[in-house]
Amino acid sequence: MGDTTNAQPLLQVENLRVEFPTRRGTLVAVDDISFHIDEGEVLGVVGESGAGKSLTGAAIIGLLEPPGRVASGQIIFDGARIDNIGYEKIRRLRGNQIAMIFQDPLTSLNPLITVGRQLTETIRTHVSVDERAARERAIELLNEVGIPAAERRVDQYPHQFSGGMRQRVVIALALAANPRLIIADEPTTALDVSIQAQIITLLKRLCKEHGTAVMLVTHDMGVIAETADRVAVMYAGRIVEVGPVQDVIRHAQHPYTHGLMNSIPVVRHDVEQLKQIDGAMPRLTDIPSGCAFNPRCPKVFEYCRDARPELVDVGATRAACWLYDDTRRAGDTT
């Protein structure tokens, strides 16, 4: 069945709502979402740009940029709430328990500080070791992420590394204090296609070895299929479908997920043109009433415009769609 949680999950997000107060009213960027990530699990979070994926990640680690704020809901990490614990406590969690990897490796590293210094600084923030031990650990980390001649490279500056190498350094930095959860925000989007697979394989291998859970935020369904254990599909600030990755890919229940799957190029089939989902995701300022996807949905019916569907168990996954509510559907067809 859908979500069976045996023990306590590593991360539990409950009814999270992220808002941006603006002059023209409050924009709701993440609207009442709940999900969990188990110890050592890879959760893919997929969706178009602006679906609220990255903001969810930023909210978890407490790095929402003002005026963005968590308006309601709870974020529970390892059994304790972390969304209201104050700056110093969340800072101690960052890097140490929960790490984050950003999209662009070219801008993620401080250009004026050597790679080694950035590593030892991070290590020494969380682990009480002296500079020499931290340096040894830094070299070890660089070796681990596959940077050749780490003893020499450790004293170099970021601009002396290529894009792929820099993302390896970023991963080393994220792993520096052995966190239990890594939030990877589009870790391969800015990289060459040939490098993307390397980085994903590396990330997957390292997290498996260290038992690190990953929240993999991406809009690339291919990356999800290769990497994730479960996947959550987001649309306009809501989770529209969540479930084990194979089930979501093979038997997508929500029409939006369906559309996403069809837009993945498949080499075997000789298709002339890729299917695409008509229209664009709504802006935060005018999210349609009812199901936010209704203007683009091929299977839309009357009730979809009236009320917003909640996640319900559908086969092996959970989907938020009125198609699976027989009474609503029946009511509509008659």
Partner: peptide, 25 residues
């Protein structure tokens, strides 16, 4: 900049981020 965000995400203290990383740049 991203590297300041990343520095914060690594749990560096405000002092280290503001003076060690930001001011230098």
């Amino acid at each position: 900049t991203d590297y300041i965000k990343f520095a914060r995400a690594r749990g560096l203290t405000n002092r280290a981020v503001n003076f060690g990383h930001a001011l230098k740049n």
